[in-house]
Amino acid sequence: MAELLLTPLVRYCEIAALWVRASTTYRASFWMLTVGGFLITGVDFVGIWILFHTVHSLGGFSLREVAFLYGGTGLAIAIADLFVGRIERLGSMIRLGRLDTMMVRPVPLLIQVCADEFALRRIARVVQALVVFGWASAYVDWSPGRVAMAASMVVSGSVIFFALFIAFACLQFWTADSAEVANAFTYGGNTLTSYPLTVFPGEVVKALTFVLPLAFVNWYPSLYILGRPDPLGFPAWTQVLSPVVALAMAGIAALVWRTGVRHYRSTGS
């Protein structure tokens, strides 16, 4: 089991490390890209902060509580994007025949696709989310249970976004220019979960629980950590389900990926 998980991870890191070393980005451009990556998601939080100049709470949650939610989902998607974000380019890899060349190499295809042109600068988004998350965490009344829940939240949340990135990118096996559909679910999901779900109608929350389980990225674990009863009256045990949901999502994503690869038609002659 350890072997099964560890070997691909090692292969990923090896390829990623070579890309970092071989990075062809010019120095000035590297720093601008890094700072830009920090700012481009950072302005979203500044936006929330501005909203709180007008109101004192959003959906019954204070700025710090919203910041905790924002940081939780932000961290999850940033980590997922750092490691598997490149899969967005699957369509162009197919078009350019790069996927063919990856397929005749002895490293799992998914690892190669995700590690391709790995760029360390994408860590800027992780740092940005971490800053907000850290600031919000300073006001949490921590207990061992809550710390454990926070760790589980970040890991499970990342895995859920991993799965979404991969599963929706697989659409590109069938229609190459559908990359943006994935955005609606990944980045759309990220925006959605940046706010307390009490802002949205109950149907949305149910959909985010039973259909596209994004509520498990940060909402349910955060309710536990912030010590708040579920506003929609879901039982308390939903708050510990995130790891289970994450595993299920990962399983579905793996299945979709395998199906996609076996249906792959390659291009051209």
Partner: peptide
């Protein structure tokens, strides 16, 4: 069908 054959021989196409 040359490339298609090669792609099957290499495992790219099922």
């Amino acid at each position: 069908g040359k490339s298609t054959t090669i792609k099957m021989l290499t495992g790219i196409l099922v």
